[in-house]
């Protein structure tokens, strides 16, 4: 916990991505597989950790401290974890002498503790910590670090640490799970590359790259390209396997629940890259109409009738067990 809190603080203070990568690499080097796995779970958004709700933490603080002074401080600081870390009165001498649990121990404890015991556990930890450690503890407990480290940066650091190609990490990334033992075993050259079920995970998309008019146009040959319509919806990846359809946004978020009207007749295992659109009789209507369907957890019949969703397919990524990028283009 001590080392991890220090890492988070250094990350938030580092302006350059390269420095962040170096810091992460340094952390992975000085910790074991278990600690690294838990650290990665906290840093990546794959594993949603939310042991205590923000409102719960707030009311805990209100019961422990003067509410007015706490709220004035919170107004000023603007970040709850940070406010608590600075507001909490603890004996700094104790903080330096006593040991905090390891990050993996801490998270395992949180996973297993009943709510009521959780509060005592948290209070005790905050008493043992210095402000930075308190900040890290609350950030982890409430989920959402917001320390300016993107998933890409984390992946780059992993690639550097394990001396593996970034592309390889990208390919398996969405099939990996907390606490990432198989990933680190591979990075540490203890075991082979983890095998990922292609019909269960999102595959990172190749999005458009900017073309430099002056340089690139001279090198590019139009015979190597095919043009196709780019529709004004949202880019999605559709995975069909075992009668189930799963819809991912371009960032890999599972958005299946919002679109129950997307169904497929095929029972074959297929991964499709396409554009999600709305409109009656599969006639695309405006992006504004599509927005009526986005970010809804529950969708009413009425909305579905008014704005039915459909897919314009661009490409097939996997067909049965095969990666289609290995096939010829016009097959």
């Amino acid at each position: 916990m001590k080392k991890f809190a220090e890492l988070l603080e250094n990350l938030i203070y580092s302006p350059s991505t390269n420095k962040k990568i170096d810091l992460l690499e340094g952390y992975f080097k000085s910790n074991n597989t278990l600690e690294n796995g838990y650290a990665l779970s906290v840093l990546s958004s794959n594993y949603k950790m939310k042991f205590i709700r923000v409102s719960e933490i707030k009311s805990l603080m209100h019961s422990k401290f003067d509410k007015t002074l706490f709220e004035l401080s919170y107004d000023y600081v603007g970040d709850l974890a940070e406010t608590i870390s600075l507001f909490w009165k603890s004996n700094m001498d104790i903080a330096n002498s006593k040991k905090l649990p390891l990050l993996s121990e801490f998270i395992k404890n949180c996973e297993n503790k009943p709510k009521k015991k959780m509060y005592d556990y948290l209070f005790n930890l905050l008493d043992l910590s210095n402000p930075t450690q308190r900040w890290a503890i609350i950030k982890i407990l409430s989920g959402g670090l917001r320390i300016g480290v993107s998933e890409k940066t984390v992946k780059k650091a992993l690639s550097k640490y394990g001396n593996k190609e970034l592309e390889k990490i990208e390919k398996i990334w969405h099939g990996l799970n907390h606490p990432y033992n198989n990933l680190f075993d591979w990075l540490d050259n203890k075991k082979p590359e983890p095998i990922i079920d292609n019909f269960k995970t999102f595959h990172p998309m190749m999005l458009s790259n900017p073309i430099d008019e002056k340089k690139d146009f001279q090198i590019l040959d139009h015979k190597d390209f095919v043009a196709e319509w780019k529709w004004d919806g949202i880019r999605v990846q559709i995975i069909i396997s075992n009668d189930k359809v799963v819809l991912f946004s371009r960032n890999g978020d599972d958005i299946t629940e919002s679109f129950p009207d997307i169904t497929f007749f095929s029972k074959k295992n297929v991964v499709i890259d396409g554009e999600l659109l709305v409109g009656k009789n599969c006639q695309p209507s405006s992006f504004n109409d599509l927005q009526q369907r986005l970010n809804r957890k529950k969708v009413s019949e009425k909305i579905i009738d008014e704005f039915p969703a459909f897919i314009k397919a661009y490409d097939i990524l996997f067909f049965r067990e095969k990666r289609s990028s290995k096939f010829e283009f016009f097959r």
Partner: peptide, 12 residues
């Protein structure tokens, strides 16, 4: 002492 201020000011 406020980390967000440090970040805003790009202080390492």
């Amino acid at each position: 002492s406020i980390k967000q201020r440090v970040k805003q000011n790009q202080i390492e």
